[in-house]
Design a binder for these strands. Structure first.
Length: 894
RNA sequence: GGGCAAUUAGCUCAGUCGGCUAGAGCGCCGCGUUCACAUCGCGGAGGUCGCUGGUUCAAGUCCAGCAUUGCCCACCA
């Protein structure tokens, strides 16, 4: 604890997040709290272990959505925790240039001005796009601030800034030299709207209804969903074992098309399913991935009939040329009908690939593009998980990672859009490539897939290929936290690039994974488990939530809404609950601050006069500390020397279960501390003998709880710390509270709970007998072990609203209500109360006890149970039985 | 077609080496008493833990099968 203090301020009655959050964030940032401590104290670089997280860079085009909020919440909690634990902590922010998304936005802006990007020209367009990105990136950055993210803005990166440009160029060149990048003509996914090739991952397959047309096709009848491609057919394929068509195989047949009669070769190929349709399939090698393969195997011609713009080419013939592919389909069908070549139409469901950005139907086509060879480097990436250097949380996602690496196809990295990293290579007329300008070679007009730069992010942000001080200290990163929906497009590729570029871990000198753990969060859905969508109108704006309830409330809600890796059902009611929780913390603090004076600490406690409540709450606080640490604990982060984990943490970590931590905190703060200890403290503070201890404990528990809460609820805890308690050193850089092992006394907790049960029991009896809230009743507690209950007498009197309490062996006779609490019995005389149910009540209590005794006796009578169950379980059962029998005896006596 | 999840109170979810009477919040019903908080306090009702078998002294928890829902992967025209 720091001795430095400002004058505490009087806290208002209700916590108003909006009144503090902006200023608190600004103060944190200004103080340098977000930066690694070693930035100002370079000596610490050697002494302290680094803890590094890179923020998955949001698109510059984006605005904050709840998915971002979840990500920021989890990462910030981890970062704040490790900062408080004494790691040299770096959380590095950045944004992604999102090539296609940005290009689309800028095109839109141009269109609104009545301009077209092609008439503007490439150079001007790129300038404009860069400016647009620059103008917009602050939006998502400001929103990241609003979430309270303790990122180091001084290291803010952008996938297209100078340093990252160097990383990208260098990466391309190295891969090219190692023959891991090549250029070639293959079947690719083409978006006719954006006029660029896309990678497999940028194509979204959607199930939709379509028509399967059965056509007369020379001597065959065959089925197709894409009749417009007929003019591009150069073959018909059948299965080699299909007897129906055997006689045609190898022949060339005449087929009537809309643009004349074509000679079509009939081939036999295993790829044809004789069961589907008619068992014969038309082959369009230029425009279908399967047909492309069949065409290669049988040397069929490739005929381009649909152009890059999605319109039919000259080769499609006069009647179709220039038409959009879907118009061409209609026209072809009309023509087929007219010629009586259409046998039937069947409505089917089939999957159609669409562009993930613009939703246009993908047109597969043959095209010359650049690719990264994946198979070789995949082995290294698989080794990362094989030998346990890379772990997934939850572990099941490791399977997804493996699955993808085991069935890998080469990655198409060239794009025909204008905005992006220029592809740093030259090509000549013969298709030869070069990294440098040579006579006859021209600079490639292509740009690189956005994900190419993202794949370098864990080390490009650290200055790679330069061996900067940051690289040496902060690489590899610790945790990569992100949504499970981008394992493939991003996580896998970062690992592949680390392997391909042989980015060495400075600490081990070998190629290690770029992070030791991948922590995956789920997708945020609405309260009923549906995905957010514009058409449902169920979207949630995190900024609106922040405005209404405060950032801490949103964060606490997101952190506690689900188990790790599971989807989050977002329910605004829970944000209300979290807001109320923040307010509860606020008011607890107001009470403690007003009630307690002085700076005495735990060392000043007088052990002899500690009450059951005092010991109990300290024990529960100790357990809470353990529980929260266990939830945050990541064994891998401790791998390097410097910070020793506590033994208990390591025993059974619940890696990254922040929901568990949040629930434990909520339970402790609201129930144990506010509802019980605080109420007991109100009594103890009036007693000269217990007042001093109580004050010390109130303050100690509050201050400790503020620390433990801080990673999840940074704002309210900091405000209380600063304004309420008047602390000068901010909480954000405070040290994680120590635990006092000597407080680990479970019986203290049990006694606390036992007294709680006594009070609850009396209250229940009061309620059952309709005792007016304001009235007082008397109570007897029949017990063999009265000392610590007697000591709590004043508290019981107040909380159960008693006019008299007796503890001892002799309960009153007659008209009473009795209930068992452990082996004790609580007896409340009913004289003067609405007591019609007294006898029934006692009877029910006795009956319940008897049932319990029966059950326990039955279990102990079971030989196999006694022999097989572990000793402590059996002993526990025996103790329970003894307790129940004692309780029954007392009930029957009353 | 292959794989992965989920299924516990009206709703949203906890329940981590199998072991007392399965918990929380919200919602619902009843009552509100002293100066932290009505964004509050106290009490209560509410569950055949999806179904069927199996393992075990003991199953919400482990195993098998089934059902329903969701997600991912896969070239079926």
């Amino acid at each position: 604890m720091s001795p430095k203090k400002d004058q505490p301020k009087e806290l208002p009655k209700t916590y108003d997040p909006a009144a503090y959050e902006g200023a608190v964030y600004a103060a944190w940032e200004k103080s340098g709290a977000f930066k690694p401590v070693s930035d100002t104290k370079p000596k610490l670089r050697k002494e302290r272990k680094a803890y590094t997280i890179i923020l998955p860079p949001p698109n510059v085009t984006g605005v904050l959505h709840v998915g971002h909020s979840l990500m920021i919440t989890l990462e910030d909690a981890l970062v704040r925790y490790h900062r408080m634990k004494g790691f040299d902590t770096l959380w590095l922010p950045g944004t992604d240039h999102a090539a296609i998304a940005t290009e689309i936005k800028v095109e839109q802006a141009l269109r609104e001005e009545g301009k077209d990007k092609r008439e503007l020209g490439k150079a001007a367009f790129v300038r404009r796009a860069k400016q647009w990105a620059k103008d917009h990136k602050h939006i998502i950055e400001d929103q990241t601030r609003a979430m309270g993210a303790s990122v180091d803005w001084s290291r803010n990166a952008f996938t297209m800034d100078k340093a990252r440009e160097q990383s990208v160029q260098e990466a391309f060149k190295r891969l090219y030299k190692q023959d891991l990048i090549y250029r070639g003509s293959y079947m690719v996914n083409w978006c006719p709207h954006d006029r660029t090739v896309l990678s497999e991952e940028q194509v979204v397959h959607k199930e939709q209804e379509g028509v399967l047309y059965y056509l007369k096709y020379g001597p065959f009848t065959l089925a197709t969903t894409r009749p417009e491609t007929k003019v591009g057919d150069t073959g018909v394929a059948v299965h080699p074992k299909d007897k129906r068509y055997a006689k045609w195989v190898g022949q060339t047949i005449d087929v009537e098309m809309i643009n004349g009669t074509h000679q079509i070769k009939v081939v036999a190929d295993e790829a044809v399913d004789p069961e589907f349709g008619t068992g014969a399939v038309k082959v369009t090698p230029f425009h279908d991935p399967n047909d492309y393969e069949i065409g290669l195997r049988h040397q069929l011609d490739q005929l381009e009939v649909i152009g890059e713009d999605g319109r039919m080419t000259e080769a499609a013939g006069k009647r179709l040329a220039g038409l959009d592919r879907f118009e061409a389909r209609k026209k072809t069908v009309d023509w087929l009908k007219q010629k009586k070549l259409l046998v039937k139409e069947e409505v089917i469901k089939h999957s159609v690939g669409r562009c993930e950005r613009c939703d246009a139907v993908i047109e597969p086509r043959v095209s010359t593009q650049w690719f990264v060879r994946m198979t070789k480097i995949a082995k290294t990436a698989l080794a990362f998980v094989d030998d346990g250097r890379l772990k997934f949380a939850p572990a099941r996602f490791e399977k997804t990672y493996r699955m993808w690496l085991e069935q890998l196809h080469d990655w198409c990295i060239s794009r025909q859009i204008w905005f992006g990293h220029p592809l740093p290579a030259y090509v000549n007329g013969k298709g030869e490539t070069s990294l440098t300008a040579k006579p006859g070679f021209k600079k490639s007009p292509d740009t690189l897939d956005t994900w190419f730069s993202s794949a370098l992010w864990p080390f490009s942000t650290m200055g790679w290929p330069k061996q900067t001080a940051d690289f040496k200290h902060f690489f590899p990163n610790d945790v990569l936290e992100t949504g499970y929906d981008i394992i493939l497009s991003w996580v896998v590729r970062m690992c592949l690039m680390t392997a391909a570029l042989e980015v060495k871990n400075p600490a081990t000198g070998r190629v290690d994974p770029p992070f030791h753990t991948v922590y995956l969060n789920g997708i945020v859905r609405d309260g009923r488990g549906r995905k957010f969508s514009k058409s449902l109108g169920n979207g949630v704006d995190p900024l609106e939530m922040i405005g209404k309830y405060g950032t801490d409330a949103l964060r606490f809600t997101l952190a506690t809404s689900n188990a790790p890796g599971a989807d989050v059902n977002f329910d605004e009611q829970r944000v209300v609950k979290s807001r109320n929780f923040a307010n509860k913390i606020w008011n607890i603090s107001r009470f403690v601050i007003n009630a307690v004076e002085g700076e005495a600490g735990l060392d000043d406690l007088q052990a002899e006069t500690l009450t059951t409540f005092d010991r109990g709450i300290l024990y529960k606080l100790y357990r809470l500390n353990q529980e929260v640490e266990r939830s945050f604990h990541d064994p891998a982060a401790y791998d390097k020397p410097g910070i020793e984990p506590r033994p208990a943490e390591v025993r059974r970590p619940r890696t990254y279960d922040l929901a568990h931590a949040g629930n434990a905190l909520y339970q402790f703060v609201w129930s144990d501390f506010a509802d019980w200890y605080l109420e007991a403290a109100k009594v103890q503070l009036r007693n000269a003998e217990t007042a001093r201890n109580t004050g010390i404990i109130l303050k100690h528990v509050l201050e400790t709880a503020l620390h433990l809460l801080h990673p999840l609820m940074p704002f309210v805890t900091e405000v209380i710390w600063r304004d309420g308690l008047g602390r000068k050193d901010p909480l954000i850089t405070g040290a994680w509270p120590a635990v006092h092992e000597d407080l680990d006394q479970p019986e203290d907790g049990e006694r606390f709970d036992r007294i709680r049960e006594v009070i609850e029991t009396i209250r229940r009896i009061r309620a059952e007998h309709k005792t007016p809230a304001a009235s007082f009743v008397q109570a007897y507690i029949v017990t063999d072990e009265p000392a610590w209950i007697v000591e709590a007498g004043d508290v019981i009197n107040k909380l159960a609203r008693l006019s008299m309490l007796r503890v001892g062996q002799h309960p009153p006779r007659g008209d009473v209500a009795s209930a068992a609490v452990g082996d004790a019995t609580v007896v409340v005389p009913l004289a003067g109360l609405a007591s019609d149910t007294a006898a029934g009540h006692l009877q029910r209590e006795i009956e319940a006890k008897r049932m319990e005794i029966e059950r326990l006796k039955g279990r102990l009578a079971n030989k196999e149970y006694v022999e097989n169950a572990p000793e402590h379980v059996v002993a526990e059962t025996k103790a329970k039985l003894a307790e129940a029998e004692a309780a029954l005896a007392k009930l029957e006596a009353s």
